[in-house]
Design a protein around this nucleic acid. Sequence first.
DNA 1: GTATAAAACTAACAATCGTTAGTTTTGTTA
DNA 2: TAACAAAACTAACGATTGTTAGTTTTATAC
Lengths: 189, 189
Amino acid sequence: MKQESRKQEIVNAAAILFKEKGYSAVTMRDLATAMGIKAASLYNHIQSKQEILSTIIIELAEEFTSGMNQIVSSDRSSIQKLENIISLHIDVTLRNADGLASLNNDWMHLEEDNLLYFEKMRQDYEDNFRQIVKKGVDMNEIKSNNIEIIVFSTLSTLRTLYLWYPKQKNIDANILKKDMISVLLQGVV
Amino acid sequence: MKQESRKQEIVNAAAILFKEKGYSAVTMRDLATAMGIKAASLYNHIQSKQEILSTIIIELAEEFTSGMNQIVSSDRSSIQKLENIISLHIDVTLRNADGLASLNNDWMHLEEDNLLYFEKMRQDYEDNFRQIVKKGVDMNEIKSNNIEIIVFSTLSTLRTLYLWYPKQKNIDANILKKDMISVLLQGVV
DNA sequence: GTATAAAACTAACAATCGTTAGTTTTGTTA
DNA sequence: TAACAAAACTAACGATTGTTAGTTTTATAC
């Protein structure tokens, strides 16, 4: 449908602006200017500013949830599962780095049902991640330093990829995955 | 001075609100309500909303800059310098986790001189960090995976500490430092 | 070329924003 | 208790916010 594509253009433009200044600081007039139209014209394609935000965030969150569910239900080793998670984050980041800024920084501006839905997905994601690490420790695949710190540090890095990746030039996804796995799992010393 | 202390109360309350919703989404009336007074009364103690933000951010940025300068000019090994940087981040985070949310997420709402000043401090900080890693690779103290990825992943984790630390209960700073050094430098496998 | 739908426009709304001016209350010191 | 300063208040301002209503332009199909 044509309206779908025009809506997507608006959502994409919004994601870029949200990344630069955050959801609350971007006005509908800012967004309209970026699209080359007037603010009121946006409402031929979207229902509200809030709808733009939830479109950006929920879609990405479901992508992560779906990817994580596949990894969890696979019969790979814990280390391989962690590698798959790293790969998942890189894939999503390459595809939609702008949107990830909103997911990371503006999720709290979601309203009601979408906020609850997002928070549940994020909680489940972290729980799955933690369980994989825990299993890895039990199986002696992972050094049992501090599980919480491993989960936190790995997830912090993966969640910040959206900021770092666009600054790298011509970086190959597969090389990036290898290097990231090496640094995050084998360490630097 | 008494006014100084009342101003600091306002700044501290603002930091908590900024952490929850971001600078742009927090109104002066929100802040006044949190302080138990009316919005106009805030202006007996502060000059503007912007002044609150710059007070929070610039002070923290200068703390990091000062700490980094000391580490750079010390004659320790690269690994020891990295350990000192980890320690610096943990110290600052324990002292002012709320303010770090603004530093990480709302620095772009600084105006003019303060924005330029902040951006320079951040750039210098990253450059110093990168130089330390580079030296470590040259001296064979650090595996030469990908220097940029090492800088990025380590800094990502340290910058996200402000979100993670408050959720941990009764965590000892020194144990945290040891564990963090272990995970970030020795890896998890 | 006329009809229809998509997508832009102008104009304006009620609400809320940061902030100011002027006034009153509170607390301290002589 | 008189004097003074600190810190609160009420009331309001001009600007900006997201959004709506109604209208006009643009593109597509017959």
